[in-house]
Amino acid sequence: MYAIKSLAPGMVMIIVSLVILSQALVMERADIFDPAGGSFFPALISLIMLICGITVLFQKYPQTEHGEEGFTAKEYRFILIFFAMVVVYVFLLSIITFFPATLIFLVASMFYLKDVSWKLNFLVSIGSVIVIYLLFSELFNIIFP
């Protein structure tokens, strides 16, 4: 288990560089061996990335101190659910327009993060929606979806 976990970053790096290299190789209208062509430089970069990936794979890591920086499964879940809420918010933005979507998102996320009284929650949410609207829409003529 530990071995797989420690090898993972290196493997991901190697895979990413190989994908980039293959894309550079199949690039149309560009000769990979012509330094002035469109694919020479990206191919070079992908090779450097590949070398970095291999280095990381064989590197002996100084054991990082767990505890302070490490993430527990619970924290991961907490964070990813918040991220999912942001994604849903963006999704809602294009369906139910700016005002309701933002208000719902703010109220819901502050509720989710806890320790904010309902009064403060609503006050801050409504306040920010109005300020952001005035700033972006009225002043900068941004049309919300």
Binding site: V86, Y89, V90, L93, S94, F98, T102, F105, L106, S109, M110, L113, K114, D115, V116, L120, V124, S128, I132, F136, F140, I142, I143, F144, P145
Partner: peptide, 23 residues
């Protein structure tokens, strides 16, 4: 942070939309 982070999240979303009016 419970108040700040959601508000910044909204600004980040709206800000990146506003650059090009593109979802």
């Amino acid at each position: 942070k419970q108040i700040l982070l959601p508000v910044i999240a909204v600004i980040t979303v709206i800000g990146s939309y506003a650059l090009n009016n593109s979802v």
